[in-house]
């Protein structure tokens, strides 16, 4: 078992097991998963549909407890915490991006972005502090949306915004609490080529310019090629770990990844 106690890892897991019951029949989704993600690392998890990518990300992000194993986020055992504390902790340290954007349809774009910050506020603070934190949350949302060229969409509801823009709002929402870790589950799965490239460049810039740690699940080699490390999953197991270098450009990295995948028969 890997050493998961080293604090230099932003995220680490060891011995993860997970199964679901489908029509009263147990299905093993994850088996003996162990990995470490250092601070500022960009990793991608690749695999076919049903290989367990999303489940792994949900467990790593504190959304789904494993049957067995341990997950350390910023050195803290995530599933040893009570639910309320785990929720606050993961919201503070991890932001989620989903394939289907998953914006709250009844809130405006700005409110969606500000929501994680507002949810961190407790009801115990006095009115003045609440107003201050509320103002700060919306200021942060405005700042992020401006950075992502979404300024004009602040008052729009998600239903009236294009898919690419919705995903950028989802990224802004994930960044709102300023987390060290960003977990992206098929972030380009619903986007066309141009929008996919735009989103991936945005994630890449977050990694390179802001030193964010990014864990991304994808089945697209073009998207995975933006990562430093690619884990290949099959039938709930980590099949291969592929290191990518971007010193020779994105195309070279993508070609290298494709060749490695071809060798694995993928």
């Amino acid at each position: 078992m890997a050493d998961t106690t080293t604090p230099s890892f932003t995220l680490a897991c060891a011995g993860l097991e997970k199964s679901f019951s489908i029509s009263h029949t147990p299905h093993q989704v994850l088996s003996s998963i162990s990995l470490q993600v250092t601070k500022g690392e960009f990793i991608a998890v690749m695999g076919a549909s049903g290989s367990g990518k999303s489940t792994l990300l949900h467990i790593l992000g504190g959304l789904e407890p494993p049957d067995k194993g341990q997950v350390l986020l910023m050195g803290e055992d995530l599933y040893a915490m009570p639910e309320e504390r785990r929720t606050a902790f993961r919201t503070q340290h991890a932001g989620f991006i989903f394939q289907s954007y998953n914006l709250i349809p009844t809130l405006t774009a700005a409110e969606n972005v500000a929501l994680p910050i507002l949810l961190q506020a407790t009801g115990r603070a006095n009115r003045k502090n609440r107003q201050a934190s509320s103002a700060a949350a919306f200021a942060r949302a405005a700042e992020l949306m401006e950075q992502l060229n979404l300024k004009g969409l602040q008052g729009h509801h998600p239903d009236n915004i294009s898919g690419g823009e919705q995903q950028k709002i989802a990224i802004a929402r994930a960044l709102a609490p300023n987390p060290e870790l960003v977990i992206a589950d098929e972030p380009t799965g619903n986007l066309d080529w141009n929008a996919s490239q735009e989103v991936m460049k945005l994630l890449s810039s977050l990694h390179q310019e802001q030193q964010r740690t990014i864990v991304m699940a994808t089945h697209e080699a073009a998207a995975a090629a933006f990562a430093q490390t690619v884990f290949v999953m099959r039938d709930g197991r980590l099949l291969e770990k592929i290191q990518l270098t971007h010193e020779n450009g994105a195309d070279k990295a993508r070609q290298h990844l494709l060749s490695q995948l071809a060798q694995l028969g993928l």
Binding site: N102, I104, L115
Partner: peptide
């Protein structure tokens, strides 16, 4: 249910 799961994803606790 979907909205609720989203809210929990971005930080809404069970009691919330």
């Amino acid at each position: 249910r979907h909205d609720f799961s989203l809210l929990r994803t971005v930080g809404l606790t069970r009691s919330g």
